[in-house]
Amino acid sequence: MDVMVEARGLEKCFGRTRALQGINLSVPAGSVLGVLGPNGAGKTTTINCLTTLLKPDKGYATIAGYDVIKQPAAVRSLIGVTGQFAAVDEELTARENLVLFGRLLRLSSVEATKRATELLEQFELLEAGNRRVKEFSGGMRRRLDLAASIVAEPLVLFLDEPTTGLDPRSRRQLWDMVVALKERGITIFLTTQYLEEADELADRIVVIDRGTVIAEGTSDDLKSRVGGTFCKLELADPKDESKVRRALSGLGDVTGTGTLTLAAPDGVTTLSEVVRRVDAIGVTLADISLCRPSLDDVFFALTGHTTGETS
């Protein structure tokens, strides 16, 4: 058995909203699947179906071979879930929260306390451990939430938009923690609105839109379909434009006026080559940067509409 999570033809309607219209996906054991999609795409609904919170109207899904619909209790023994909104108790301290979940997962009081300390340390919350959660920042809350879902080590961890609304530093911290969990062999199912996040964490990416899977593959697969990284340069003096175009010929198609862009398949290598050539002809640049395609770019390339038009 090397498939840990499998979904076939999941469908779910809420009244007249067709939230899922046949989701197919599978996650190999020990890998990270990134589910990428804009707001309202059906990410949360998919997670709810896979974690026994919601019964799909049609289709089936399994976790480690256990049927989500027919053996929900077994499935719950194998999973950890971090929902979209940090579900921890405001009035309780971080430690009390973790002990609570530990005891619910059948650790003894002593074990649960020990485990709580371990997790607080691992998630850099030890100092704040005895403060009430309502005094926590968004990043701390998220980390605690993540810790709470692995109090008893799961086989599969579901993370629903774990970094939405976090500052860059907290996001980076959380990513490191997810990577650490992956290295322990936990299979991870992660939804996100950021291509960058999926790129960073996921082995494979599934793009969903309006309740269906519209693309699937590794991050590189997707990028090559979208066009991958590109290099963007802004000239200090627009009059130099034709000179620069000539200097860059051979590196690839240069598009745009004023701000020029060209594909940078080799990333930084391409960038430094551009800088070298522009320097050689004595032109000053106002700005130069490497850009990755955003979720919007991916969507535009895959569907012909931008994310905003989805809902």
Partner: peptide
């Protein structure tokens, strides 16, 4: 707050 959903997704 989602506490209920969390409990529902746990083996309790």
């Amino acid at each position: 707050t989602g506490m209920l959903q969390r409990c529902r997704a746990m083996p309790i």
